Amino acid sequence: MASRGAIVKLDQVYKSFGSNQVLKGVSFEVAKGEMIAIIGASGSGKSTALRCIDRLEVIDRGSIEVCGIRVDDPAIDLKQLRLEVGIVFQSYNLFPHLTVEENILLALKHVKKLATAEARQVALRVLEQVGLKEKAGAYPEQLSGGQQQRVAIARSLAMSPKVMLFDEVTSALDPQLTGEVLRVMEDLAAGGMTMLLVTHEMAFAKRVADRIIYMHQGKVWEVGGGEMLDAPQTPELRAFLDNGL
Rank of each mutant, 00 (worst) to 15 (best):
T194W: 00
V208K: 00
C67R: 09
K206F: 01
I7P: 05
M1I: 04
A203N: 13
L132F: 01
I153Q: 09
G145H: 01
N243R: 14
V122G: 05
L10H: 03
I53A: 08
F28H: 03
G45A: 08
P232C: 05
L132D: 00
E141W: 12
I153F: 07
A31W: 10
Y14R: 12
L50A: 04
L173P: 00
H110W: 13
Q149W: 10
A6G: 07
F204A: 00
S27E: 10
R238I: 02
K113L: 12
T199M: 11
K219P: 13
Q90N: 02
V126E: 08
K79Q: 14
A152V: 05
S16K: 07
A138E: 03
V22W: 05
T234K: 09
G179R: 14
R211K: 15
K46W: 08
Q142L: 10
N103D: 05
A189D: 01
K24L: 08
T194Y: 07
M195D: 02
A115Q: 15
A239F: 13
I69W: 09
G68F: 02
D77R: 11
G218A: 06
Q121D: 15
V88P: 03
R238C: 02
G25I: 00
S63G: 10
V223G: 02
D73C: 08
K113T: 03
S3A: 10
A190N: 13
I39G: 01
T116S: 12
G33C: 08
M35W: 11
G33V: 00
G5S: 02
V169M: 02
R51M: 10
G43T: 04
T199N: 12
G86C: 01
N20L: 14
D174R: 06
A231K: 15
V13P: 00
G224H: 10
R120C: 11
H97I: 07
G137Q: 07
K206W: 10
R150Y: 08
V163F: 06
L94V: 05
L81G: 01
G192M: 07
M215T: 05
V220D: 02
M164P: 09
D77P: 09
S156T: 05
E186K: 14
L94N: 07
V85S: 03
A231T: 15
K109Q: 14
L245G: 11
A172V: 03
V66T: 00
V85Q: 02
D210M: 08
V88L: 04
V100E: 01
N20I: 15
A31K: 11
N93T: 10
G40M: 04
L23T: 04
F240M: 04
L124C: 09
V85M: 01
S16C: 08
V130R: 03
V100P: 09
L157E: 01
L98A: 10
L196P: 04
E141A: 13
